[in-house]
Design a protein around this nucleic acid. Structure first.
Lengths: 148, 148
DNA sequence: CCCTTTATTTGCAAAATGCAAGTATTTGTT
DNA sequence: AACAAATACTTGCATTTTGCAAATAAAGGG
């Protein structure tokens, strides 16, 4: 119980690897950041650039360039927003949707395998724990408080 | 229960931020990767370069250069290994130990705050869950299997 | 109609990355 | 003992990523 940091270090290390290893889909090569961006765009409702960048706590200039890349790769579409012409609305192209779904499937396959080493009860406990942890991290005032 | 990917996405996002925000100690600026390296060196027992690079799944050439930087910053010491002169043993300098301890304290402070939103029972459940999750990820054959 | 704020992009320079190739040393084979 | 193969680590690129400062463009508020 005392070695909380150790626990988190191991977990983040592994989860980092998880992301790092799940980013080649079909012919498309994606970086970790790019897969996070696709996921967020898919998840959010007609988000602007700024909103997605904020959600991921990525510097807006870096984000702008990442989006340019993803647009060139034909995975993301930028649509001018009629109500405010400074703003672009982001969405996934059909190919972007396909790639995102593929990554999702891969990650889920991996998670499924991980959870296959647990009993039904353990699985539920672990998932509820993560849920609770996320909620408490969201409440935290120490760091990175906004993030939805 | 169904939205497992979502749960993990949120968690990794937050934990990534955690790391990203905890890397300026005293006068010293550390990147996320560098703080991971310091932590591993501290944790492992007289590790070689290769061993630490493997533990973190960092490319050995990138790692080599990161170590050069950390040596210049006077945080890490490279000691030739007498039994095998190809090998260098890594250790933290006193300053490296200090910085690592500081980061540890900061992370623990953050985690303490996060856990303060839970009951004693919840806290224990969550920590045990993470422990179990780490074990099951270690068992997984899908990806990144070695990593201790 | 200015002044401030907000959304996004570009210039630049620094840092990180990884492959290919290099050096040095050890180990295994005959 | 000699030599080929394997291992630990470093260096040379060339590419990518990053973020601060500054620019552009549009919106909003007196």
């Amino acid at each position: 119980m005392e070695n909380v940091r150790e626990l988190f270090h191991t977990m983040t290390k592994r989860l980092g690897l998880l992301d790092r290893n799940c980013c080649t889909v079909g012919g498309v090569e994606l970086s970790l950041v790019q897969s996070h961006i696709l996921y967020e765009i898919d998840r959010m409702n007609e988000p602007s650039m700024q909103q997605v960048a904020d959600a991921l706590a990525i510097d807006i200039t870096t984000f702008s360039r990442q989006i340019q890349t993803l647009v060139k790769m034909n995975l993301v579409k930028k649509t001018p927003y009629s109500q405010d012409r400074r703003v672009y609305i982001l969405s996934l192209t059909p190919e972007g949707k396909y790639v995102t779904a593929k990554i999702d499937a891969e990650v889920n396959e991996y998670l499924g395998e991980v959870f296959s080493h647990m009993s039904e009860f353990e699985r539920e406990t672990v998932l509820r724990s993560i849920q609770l942890l996320n909620e408490c991290m969201a409440k935290s005032t120490v760091c990175c408080k906004p993030l939805f």
